[in-house]
Write a protein that binds this DNA or RNA. Structure first.
Lengths: 156, 156
DNA sequence: CGTGAAAGAGCGGACTT
DNA sequence: AAGTCCGCTCTTTCACG
């Protein structure tokens, strides 16, 4: 994991459809060397996946909510059950188990408020282990991404 | 935007490096038809971008924090300034402007607590328009992604 | 790590329904 | 308008220096 790899990864986090030739110009290596490095980065799991990112608005998923969920009991079996449900639910884009005031933070997409209300009925009101939840409606997705900063450190 | 497009997009949200031939088997179209649809989906912005997703753990165990920020004044010029800074900061993976108890919700990565404290100094304490912020440390990234559900409707 | 040849994928045009 | 077939071009891949 040297400076070449970092430059490569920074590029791939922006656009993974760039040809090896274009990448080679940007990082200062030959095209083949870039491809070999990328292959290794994929094999070792540094690159976890390669995906298309959709525009939610283009698909009719116009609302995004950030939800803080507080559980009634923090027993592992209840938490695991909740995690399992969140993973299985397509409306839940992201789910984090956190310390602090809440137990979980979710990022949920919905077509409209009615759609979201149905979600809350199914997953919160109907779940007796959910003590309370607080919804924040997103007005502006200022920055949305998964890009990891690579400047400087990191242990490969 | 029909069932073929939805199947295509669902596949591309999992892996955008599948060949048109493999995609054609999965969605029931010819390879060429898949490519033409994908091209149109990119041109129309339904596919917003194509990226590599890195494994944060492979890059040096970084911490993830979810931060709720409350501003002193909600005047547009202050908000825009804050948004600009968040977009420019690599530590900020995601930033949402929201209704509710807080004004912004951030998802921040840091190398360690010291690194995060430095971040808070630079962006919160040093910014007189930040009234307060509350940090939730992520213990388990139960579900992390940007995949949008496509089941059913939506208006391309 | 860089070079060169071979296999494979993407791309666009013409034709069909 | 959309899908298929069939060329061509570019990209990736691998063996070797």
């Amino acid at each position: 994991m040297d400076e070449f790899d970092r430059k490569l990864l920074n590029q791939m986090q922006i656009n993974n459809r760039q040809t090896a030739e274009i990448l080679s110009e940007k990082v200062g290596l030959s095209p083949a060397a870039c491809q070999k490095r990328l292959k290794k980065l994929r094999e070792t799991g540094v690159i976890a996946s390669d995906i298309s990112v959709l525009d939610p608005a283009s698909i009719g998923r116009r609302m995004t909510m950030i939800v803080e969920v507080t559980m009634e009991r923090e027993r592992p079996e209840y938490l695991d059950e909740f995690k399992r449900k969140m993973r299985a639910s397509p409306e839940v884009m992201q789910c984090y188990y956190v310390t602090g005031t809440a137990d979980f933070v979710l990022i949920v997409t919905a077509k409209d408020m009615k759609d979201y209300e149905e979600f809350t009925r199914n997953f919160f009101f109907q779940n007796s282990n959910v003590r309370r939840f607080q919804t924040n409606v997103v007005m502006d997705g200022v920055k949305v991404g998964l890009a990891v900063p690579l400047s400087g450190d990191g242990e490969g």
